[in-house]
Amino acid sequence: TIDEIIKALEQAVKDNKPIQVGNYTVTSADEAEKLAKKLKKEY
């Protein structure tokens, strides 16, 4: 679900690790936030 994706992003940001979500690779908190907002609009 979208919530699980967002939790995974938040965890990756805390661990400061890049995370791959679908076609996106998120490497920073800023990118994670942008991706989360984008995904919320889509779903």
Rank of each mutant, 00 (worst) to 15 (best):
N16K: 08
Y43S: 07
Y24G: 04
A12L: 09
Y43I: 12
K41W: 12
L9V: 04
Q20Y: 04
V13Q: 08
E42G: 07
V26C: 14
Q11P: 01
E4K: 06
D3G: 10
G22D: 06
A29W: 07
I19V: 13
E42W: 13
E10N: 06
V26I: 14
I6G: 00
I5D: 00
V21R: 00
E42I: 14
K41T: 13
A36I: 15
V21C: 12
E10F: 12
K41D: 14
E33L: 14
A8L: 13
E42K: 10
S28W: 09
T1F: 13
A8V: 09
G22H: 07
E4G: 05
K17P: 02
T1G: 11
I2H: 05
K41H: 14
E31K: 00
A8D: 04
E33S: 06
E31C: 10
L9T: 01
T1N: 09
K40A: 09
K41P: 03
V21D: 01
A32V: 05
K14P: 02
K14A: 11
A8E: 06
A32K: 03
S28Q: 02
L35N: 01
Q11F: 07
E31R: 00
T27W: 13
E42N: 07
K34Y: 10
K17W: 15
Q11I: 05
I19A: 08
A8M: 13
I19E: 00
T1P: 10
I19Y: 05
P18Q: 04
K34W: 13
L35Q: 01
I2P: 05
K37T: 14
K17D: 01
G22P: 02
P18L: 07
K7R: 13
A29D: 02
D15I: 06
E31N: 01
D3M: 15
D30T: 07
K14I: 15
K34E: 14
A12V: 12
V26A: 10
A36G: 03
K7S: 10
I6H: 01
V13T: 06
V26Y: 04
K40Q: 10
A36V: 15
K34Q: 12
E42S: 05
K17Q: 10
K7H: 12
I19T: 09
K40I: 13
Y24D: 02
T1D: 11
I5Y: 04
D15E: 09
E10M: 13
V26P: 03
A29S: 11
E31S: 02
I2F: 12
G22L: 07
K34V: 12
L9Q: 02
L35K: 00
L9E: 00
E33Y: 09
K7Q: 10
E10Y: 13
I6V: 04
D15R: 01
K17S: 08
I6W: 03
L9H: 00
N23H: 12
D30P: 05
S28N: 15
E4W: 13
K40L: 13
K17L: 13
E42Y: 09
E33N: 07
T27N: 14
Q11W: 03
T27S: 14
N23K: 12
I5R: 00
K34F: 11
L39S: 00
V13E: 01
Q20S: 11
V21Y: 06
Q11Y: 04
A36S: 08
L35F: 01
V21P: 00
K40S: 08
V21S: 01
S28I: 02
A36C: 14
T1A: 11
A8Y: 07
V13S: 07
L9F: 01
E33K: 10
K14E: 07
S28R: 00
K17V: 12
I6F: 06
K41V: 08
D3F: 14
A36N: 01
N16S: 07
K41N: 15
